[in-house]
Design a binder for these strands. Sequence first.
DNA 1: CATGGCTTTTGACCCGTGTCAAGTGCCAGT
DNA 2: ACTGGCACTTGACACGGGTCAAAAGCCATG
Lengths: 253, 253
Amino acid sequence: MKPQRHTSAPAATDSCRGALARVSCRSCALNTLCLPARLPPQEARVLESVVERGRQLCAGASLIRAGTRMDALYVLRSGSAKRYAFTMNGAERVHGFVLPGETVGLEGFASDRYACEVAALEPTSYCRIPLNRLEPLLEQLPGLRREVLRLLGEALDESLRLRAELGMCDARGRVARFLADLSRRLELRGLSPTQFRLSMSRGDIARHLGLTLETVSRALGTFKRSGWVEVRARYITLLRPEALASMGGYAAS
Amino acid sequence: MKPQRHTSAPAATDSCRGALARVSCRSCALNTLCLPARLPPQEARVLESVVERGRQLCAGASLIRAGTRMDALYVLRSGSAKRYAFTMNGAERVHGFVLPGETVGLEGFASDRYACEVAALEPTSYCRIPLNRLEPLLEQLPGLRREVLRLLGEALDESLRLRAELGMCDARGRVARFLADLSRRLELRGLSPTQFRLSMSRGDIARHLGLTLETVSRALGTFKRSGWVEVRARYITLLRPEALASMGGYAAS
DNA sequence: CATGGCTTTTGACCCGTGTCAAGTGCCAGT
DNA sequence: ACTGGCACTTGACACGGGTCAAAAGCCATG
C-alpha cells in the first residue's frame, strides 16, 4: 500500500489544484459529478486506490493520442479539452469538448486503441485509471461494472442524440444548442451558467457542429444583435438563455 | 433446465429459420459474426445457455419500444430492422439499420431504459439475452465482459465516425457511402455485395443521412445516369462499387 | 382489368450556408 | 510604439439541397 499524505485542511473546496498527495476522491471538489459519485461508498474507496493523478497539461498538449494502445481511462479534474480525429481526406473533425468530471477514452474499447485525439484547450489536470488495475475490479465490484456500462451507454446515447438533433436544425439552432448545452454543463459544475469563457476557438466549434467558422461567427453576431448574448472575444454572457434553449430545441423533454 | 431438442442434421447452413429447438449458437449460420464468435469456446457455451430465441416479427412490428425498461439485449437472426427515435418537435430520426448478427439495445445502459425504437423492416427473427441472466455471467466470464465493452465501444466509435463523415460530404457522397457500407455488411454475411434489396424506404434512408427523400432519390438518379448502379424500385445492383466507395470517402484507411 | 393508395421520381424555385476575400481587433515579440 | 501573426468579423456571391407541387410507378384489393 502506498503512503497516504493528507493536506491538513481537508476542505472539499472549489479546486483540486493545490493538492500534491495521492488521489482522494472524497475530498475532491468533483466528488458529486465524477465517476465514483454513483458507486456505493465501499466500492468508491477501492476504486480510489487505483486512480493515479496525472500531471498538469499545458494548453495544446495531448492527453490521449489517437491510434495508441488503450491502457487507461481518463477523467478531467480541471481545465477543458477537445476530442477530435481526422477523416481520411485530412480534415479535422471535433467530436466534442470535455469538462471536469467527464470521462474520456471510452471509444478505445472498440479496438484496444484510442480512436480520438484528446488535447487540452487550456492548462488542464486529470486523473488516470489504468486498465490493468480496472479490469480486476470489474470482476469484484458489481456497482463499478454497472457504472462503466452506464458511462459507455451514456456516451453512445449522447452521440446519437447529438447527431439527430444537429442534423435537424439550421446553423443558428446548432450554435444556440451548443451554448445552451455548455451552459447547462457549467452550471452542473457550480460555475455561472450565463457568463463564461469559451476555451475553444470558433473553428473548433464549427468543426464540432458541422459548420464553417464564418457561419458560427455570423450566428453569434445575430444573437448579439437580437440582444440574446453579449460577446467579447471568447467571453460570453447569455442574456436570454431561454431564447437560445428554445431555438436549439432544448425543450423540457 | 429447459428441454434440449436437436435437429438431427447439425448443418450450419445458410439459415436458422427451420429450427424450432432452443438456441444452439454453434449450429447457427451466424456463428462467425454473432456475439459468441469472439468468446473463448467454453464461455460461448455458457452464454448460449441463457440466450432465448424470439419469435418471428412481421414487418413493422417493434422489437424494442423506446422508453421501456431495459431488460435484455437483442441480436438479429434474420431479416432487418431500423433503429429510430423522435426529436421533441416530433420529427423521426433514423439512427441506423440492423442486420443479422448485430446487437441492439446497448444505448439502454445509459438510463436503464431503451432510447431507440427498433422495428422490423421485413419478417425478422432474433435472439434475446435477458439482463438478469447476463449480469451474473459478466462477473464470471472475463471474455464476455471484454466483449460487451467492445460492443459498446464499437457502437460509440461507429456513431462518432458516422457523424464525422456524413457531416463532411454532400448529399451524393452520403448516399454513396450508405450504399458502400451496406454492401460491405451484406458481404460479411455471405450475401451478394453488388445485388440486393433495400428493405428500407427512401424516406428512412433520408432520415438516416440527414437529407430529404427527394434528395436521396435524385442522388440515386445521378448514379443511375452515370452507370454506377442499376435501380429497380427497391432492388439495387452496384455496377461500379469502387466509384461509390471513393465518392463516399471509403478509402483504404 | 380497373381502382385507389402509397412510394418514388422529376421539375421549378428560393433560401441558407459554404466559399472567397477583405478588413478589424488583439496580443506578443523586437 | 511598431510589427507581424493569428483569431475573428463582415461582405458579396454562387450553388446545393430543402420545399412545394405534380406526375409516374408499383402493388394491393375488389
